[in-house]
């Protein structure tokens, strides 16, 4: 897909992060090849969001390095801009802009950040809205849509910026069960198109069908990196076993697939 197959999409080396005295991320090392679908799971408060948010510099980190698509992340604003152009991000609570229509939500960044003419941006937005299967909602405001629809708009909004990498931070955990599937379907569709995806999720069905690798995090550390099959069938650490036990007993499994 790209001309530079030599470097990884994301390379994290020796990453440490503190909130004040609290050591949130401890010695994270991770290479994500281009086109890989990576699922991150782990108990609440284990630092999954923090790690993912470091990748597009929504969070600062104190030690270690992150290289995104060959661009080392530093405090330099230019570089951060370049990285953010490559990386799209989905949030748990969608974070659509409530004062703009769905279409305007999608065209805002292409017009003002990518400096695309309005007309062109609208065509692009309609294209992606069709791809997430809600072209008919373009004129509505986010508040008038269901959670599942809002998250799909958020995906379309990301895609309009033509990212090479997408980060998902628990995109379905704020949704009612009947809406989870519609969002996961769109994500599976994306995965099949070859997008590099890093996805914090507890949707085990999704992880099984889509993920190339699964990462298990606990207390700011990566405890296990494995294939989904191996991880779900036979987790190596006690914490992972315990965690999977809890997840399965709560019936999260097999919601998608």
């Amino acid at each position: 897909m790209t001309t530079q197959e030599t470097h990884h999409a994301i390379e994290i080396t020796g990453l440490h992060k503190w909130y004040g005295d609290f050591h949130v991320l401890k010695d994270i090392n991770l290479q994500v090849p281009q086109g890989e679908r990576l699922v991150i799971c782990g108990p609440s408060g284990s630092g999954k969001s923090t790690m993912v948010r470091c990748i597009n510099k929504l969070e600062d980190f104190q030690r270690g390095s992150i290289v995104v698509d060959g661009i080392p992340l530093t405090d330099d604003l230019k570089r951060i801009d370049r990285v953010r152009r490559e990386v799209g991000m989905l949030f748990q609570n969608f974070n659509l802009f409530p004062h703009l229509t769905v279409l305007e939500n999608c065209t805002l960044a292409p017009v003002w950040v990518r400096r695309m003419p309005q007309r062109e941006a609208e065509e692009l937005a309609m294209h992606f809205l069709a791809r997430v299967r809600i072209p008919d909602q373009a004129g509505k405001y986010p508040g008038q849509l269901s959670g599942g629809q809002q998250q799909r708009v958020a995906i379309a909004r990301c895609l309009c910026m033509n990212p090479k990498i997408m980060l998902f931070d628990e995109p379905t955990s704020a949704l009612d069960p009947e809406m989870i599937k519609e969002v996961l379907d769109v994500m599976i569709d994306l995965a099949e198109s070859g997008m590099t995806m890093i996805c914090v999720t507890h949707e085990m069905g999704f992880a099984r069908t889509v993920a190339d690798r699964v990462i298990f995090m606990d207390q700011g550390e990566i405890m296990e990196i494995n294939t989904p099959d191996a991880f779900f069938r036979n987790p190596q650490t006690d914490r992972a076993k315990e965690f999977l036990g809890q997840i399965l007993s709560h019936g999260f499994d097999e919601t998608a697939g």
């Binding site: 597009n56 929504l58 604003l77 801009d81 953010r84 152009r85 990386v87 799209g88 991000m89 949030f91 609570n93 974070n95 659509l96 802009f97 805002l108 960044a109 003002w112 950040v113 990518r114 909004r157 990301c158 910026m161």
Partner: peptide, 14 residues
């Protein structure tokens, strides 16, 4: 909510 600014940042807005 803080998320509004974060979403803007993530989309590349300064």
């Amino acid at each position: 909510p803080k998320g509004q600014f974060e979403a803007a940042e993530a989309l590349g807005f300064r």
